[in-house]
């Protein structure tokens, strides 16, 4: 079943020229006359494509180039080099036809008018996108119910809590039933319950409407919970592109043996079993190669006074910390 490619990115590059900041009084005086600039390579040769209906997580630390890539996919920024094709359009052309099919929600910037109640802001969006009354009413009813925001709709947006505001932003972004939803750090600053709610919401609309979703985050849980595929990016380079399962299988070479002893054991003695991650008197965590883990566990059991033994998988976070954050 060949699914349509909706996003296609080829050798994308974005370089910025930034003035160098000066420190000190005399440097400031000098900068009056002569400014120095430097080039920042925010995105450096990134290639990938996304099919209709996928949920893709774009993962990487701050300054990795995630937001910049997203902005080029939505037409906000112009690439320095390379090509971008979204739904058959070049985003930078800002074609109205294209704009009506996508949506962008940014965790730290708003699209809702500050002084108005959420409902009024939605109505303004309705006029801008030319949404018919029927479509609007249906979408409005569905989305407000899904996110449970009915009680706050009459409150001015600036008085809403961060969680309520994010929910309203999501509604505003989906009223015109876009084919692709882009999200930039959508759960940043939200409390745990709301984060969960937002993630469930995204999964739901992807399943029920077939909306392609692309989100960036530096929260592991966002990506784990929501997306089937993850693209890792750092220093503007793509480091990994594939499913999370494959990521773990490829990079999570170790399993953890979490052991509790009946008597204190010196950590140096444990080194023959595997790499000691942590150890206290009667407890230790040892990393052992995935292939050998059964044998190593047996070794541990025979050689040492083990009271309790747990075998655990490496976490995504650990994988990323170890392999991808340099």
């Amino acid at each position: 079943m060949a699914e349509k490619t909706v996003i296609s990115v080829n050798h994308l590059q974005k370089y910025f020229t930034v003035p160098e900041k000066t420190a000190g009084f005399s440097a400031s005086l000098r900068s009056l006359v002569h400014r120095k600039y430097k080039t920042v390579k925010a995105v450096d040769d990134v290639t990938f494509s996304i099919r209709e209906g996928e949920i893709v997580g774009f993962l990487g630390p701050n300054g990795a180039g995630k937001t910049t890539t997203l902005k080029m996919l939505t037409g906000i920024l112009y690439p320095t080099n390379g090509t971008v094709d979204v739904l058959g359009h070049i985003p930078q052309k800002h074609e109205k036809v294209f704009q009506k099919q996508i949506s962008l929600v940014m965790g730290q910037k708003n699209q809702l008018w500050w002084d108005l109640p959420a409902t009024d802001a939605f109505l303004l969006n309705k006029e801008i996108y030319g949404i018919s009354d029927a479509t609007y009413n249906k979408a409005f009813a569905e989305l407000t119910e899904l996110l449970g925001v009915a009680p706050v709709l009459a409150t001015p947006v600036r008085k809403l809590s961060l969680g309520q505001r994010m929910k309203c932003e999501l509604i505003a972004a989906l009223l015109h039933e876009p084919k692709i939803l882009f999200l930039d750090e959508p759960t940043i600053g939200l409390d745990v319950a709301t984060q969960k709610r937002v993630r469930e919401f995204l999964i739901k609309i992807n399943r029920e409407r077939g909306t392609t979703i692309m989100l960036t985050s530096h929260y592991m849980e966002d990506v784990e919970a929501v997306s089937s595929r993850v693209i890792m990016i750092n220093h503007g380079h793509k480091l990994y592109d594939g499913t999370i399962a494959k990521l773990m299988a490829t990079y999570a070479k170790d399993k953890y043996l979490m052991v509790e002893f009946s008597k204190p054991v010196q950590s140096t003695r444990l080194a023959e079993v595997g790499e000691v991650v942590s150890s206290r008197e009667t407890r230790a965590t040892i990393a052992v190669p995935r292939k050998d883990h059964a044998k190593r566990a047996a070794l541990l059991l025979t050689r040492f006074p083990v009271e309790n033994l747990d075998i655990k998988e490496m976490k995504l976070e650990d994988v990323i910390l170890e392999h991808f954050s340099k």
Partner: peptide, 10 residues
């Protein structure tokens, strides 16, 4: 209220 968002509107 971001300029970016404005550029996105049809």
């Amino acid at each position: 209220w971001s300029l970016d968002m404005m550029l996105l509107k049809p």
